[in-house]
Design a protein around this nucleic acid. Structure first.
Lengths: 208, 208
DNA sequence: ACTTCGGCAGAACGGTCGTTCAGCAGTGCC
DNA sequence: GGCACTGCTGAACGACCGTTCTGCCGAAGT
């Protein structure tokens, strides 16, 4: 273990803080919020129990910080993908699906916490969390509605199609194995194809 | 509270046992296995803590009993639906999707436990549980493979399509509201349509 | 009437949990 | 050199957990 006593204080703190957050992520994702213990988190981070409480106010604050950070990172991915997608609804839906699949595959641990441990947050945080999730579904809903309006999406069940698209993308966090045969970009294309199929995509024919 | 002292002993026991199982279901689904307490389960069932331990060996046995029962009920639905579906792959996939959606919508509490609390079971039980889940995915995989062989399913990504179908069906347990506007049979038809769309269903044309 | 016995209550046990607290090294300032 | 101060440690606290144990209460057998 390197001697960190003479490093700048901010650096020491930042390293400790990050190690604790990473350890909490692993423990929450592996055992679930309630089964994870603060002592195990501190041990995994290589700091003492008191040090953890020196940096963070408590267990629930760790969870809420992880969820908030993960959710904002996901939103940033989505809005960036949408900004690069232009106005065509098919391209926008493709961008959303690709961004979601990529995020779920690359941040599996965070995704499992954000999607699976939300019931353990405080009531005030839950309001915020639920509102942000509604915004995320609205991104998909808007793209699908635009496609229906333009006539390039033909599904008779847009609400069910939207839920199906979101469910299949989120499920990637449950099963994807980064050591497996399928690289993430391939997965993004497959899921974009499946999503367009689900909404009944028929490319516009110029004139008839 | 009615006086149950003179009922047949078997009836008393059965009522108590069932009340405990139902209470455990609600508590596990609402708070998660680790956050649920045996005292709360007993209180919700209207029995004493000692009575619970008189009927069941412990908390984990309650969970495993609930999971095993729920999983077998789901399998029974699937095999019954398949038996009535005949040999056509599209009908078989439709039957599987309808049975799954129906089960997830009607047994939301059990489904949430089976799908979400499996990490809390004993290692020996987990082996059995995982094997049964693999059998369930195999039912879907077989139907899809048969459709591809016959040429009526045209998806280029059958594995991803299978995972998408299962994910969207299972998600029903998360969001379905029995007091909402959509009755379950309607949902079954919608999801069957979506599933056939996902696998690229093209009805066979007799000759060309 | 007396014994026997199964079915449960109530209390208790050992353990772990999240959280707090008093105090001690090491650092920088006067 | 003395001193305040920051950053952290080890120990402790109170609460609650899953589980067990002792014993009573009512019914059945004789």
């Amino acid at each position: 273990m390197p001697d960190t006593r003479n490093r700048p204080a901010a650096g020491r703190q930042a390293a400790g803080r990050q190690a604790i957050i990473d350890a909490a992520r692993e423990e929450f994702a592996a055992r679930g919020f309630d089964a994870a213990s603060v002592r195990d988190i501190a041990a995994r981070a290589g700091v003492s129990l008191s040090a953890l409480y020196h940096y963070y106010p408590g267990k629930q604050a760790l969870l809420e910080g992880i969820i908030a950070t993960g959710l904002e990172a996901y939103f940033a991915s989505c809005t960036a993908a949408l900004a690069a997608a232009g106005e065509d609804p098919a391209r926008r839906l493709t961008a959303l699906v690709a961004a979601t699949v990529r995020h779920r595959a690359h941040h599996r641990v965070d995704s499992r916490i954000v999607l699976g441990e939300a019931r353990s947050v405080s009531p005030e945080f839950r309001v915020h969390h639920r509102a942000r999730l509604r915004e995320a579904t609205a991104l998909f809903a808007d793209a699908i509605t635009a496609g229906l309006t333009r006539g390039t999406f033909t599904t008779p069940h847009p609400d069910d199609a939207r839920r199906a698209v979101i469910a299949m993308c989120n499920a990637v966090a449950q099963w994807y194995d980064p050591t497996g045969p399928t690289p993430v970009p391939t997965l993004e294309r497959h899921y974009a194809d499946l999503a367009l199929t689900l909404v009944g995509y028929r490319p516009a024919v110029p004139e008839w």
